[in-house]
């Protein structure tokens, strides 16, 4: 079994549902986000950037733990708190983590989060405490890899929703994505949804230069100026957003 996730950038509409649903399902304290979506290069969320020809473009890029096959976070962890399970998922055992933060310095993707303090429960609208997230702790072979009450001084990150996938349920971000931009499954199974989805498609990974061999695979967006021009030409509307200067 080799779990992986595909993020199809053509389908991502930048709604950030994945980031919010992930935060909610994992009781992530304030300021902690396992999953984030930005437009690279944009000063504000949802604004365009210029490509090398100076034409405006906008592309949303969701980033969470890449579940690297050669995970530097795991090799540097002095206690073995960070480990790869039999499904290829990189996890952190909260009870073994000593909070050295070496893994945070080693991860090129900036996805590891530290519990710098004790997160106070959030007040709900009715004045009572608002509790959220998967309510029970989850252990894998005795190792505590999820608990809604986060211990202070430990590192946490995306687990590919180990508490759900162990029950045959897909990760929350995949279930919640309105554009179906995220596809999860077993790369070793030729009949899995992810294997079918990848057939004949070329993927790319983030931070290839680090040699981490991520298991989050991205499909390039095909949206671009050509498509927009073609659409506008078809509609007889002239040029797109002043990019051609005609």
């Amino acid at each position: 079994m080799r779990y992986a996730m595909v993020v199809d950038l053509d389908r991502c509409i930048g709604c950030r549902t994945c980031a919010v649903i992930c935060k909610g399902h994992h009781a992530q304290p304030e300021g902690i986000w396992w999953n984030r979506v930005f437009v690279p290069g944009a000063p504000e969320y949802g604004t365009s950037v210029l490509n090398e020809e100076g034409q405006p473009r906008m592309e949303f890029l969701p980033v969470s733990c890449q579940h690297c096959d050669d995970a530097p976070c795991q090799s540097v962890c002095p206690t073995g708190a960070t480990y790869t399970d039999e499904n290829g998922v990189v996890l952190v055992d909260f009870e073994r983590c000593i909070g050295c933060r070496y893994c945070m310095t080693a991860c090129p993707y900036g996805v590891r989060q530290f519990n710098w303090g004790h997160a106070e429960p959030l007040p709900g609208t009715d004045g009572a405490t608002y509790s959220y997230g998967y309510p029970a702790e989850y252990r894998q072979d005795g190792r505590l890899v999820y608990t809604p009450q986060r211990p202070e001084g430990v590192v946490e990150k995306c687990t590919f929703c180990v508490q759900y996938t162990s029950q045959g349920i897909e990760p929350a971000c995949c279930a919640g994505c309105p554009g179906n931009a995220r596809i999860f499954g077993d790369l070793d199974d030729p009949d899995s949804e992810i294997s079918h989805y990848l057939e004949g498609r070329e993927t790319f990974v983030l931070g290839e230069e680090h040699g981490t061999h991520p298991k989050v695979l991205y499909l390039k967006s095909t949206r671009g100026i050509e498509d927009a021009s073609a659409l506008l030409d078809a509609a007889g509307a002239g040029t797109a957003m002043g990019t051609d200067g005609e």
Binding site: G31, I32, R36, E52, E53, P108, V111, Q113, N115, K220
Partner: peptide, 26 residues
């Protein structure tokens, strides 16, 4: 920053990508 990304389908600069601060500041 440590993570940089450009546009996926055409030549573009590589831009720094933000990360979560971890501060519990409302």
């Amino acid at each position: 920053p440590t993570l940089f990304a450009g546009l996926s389908n055409q030549p573009s600069p590589e831009w720094a990508y933000p990360m979560s601060t971890g501060q519990y500041a409302t």
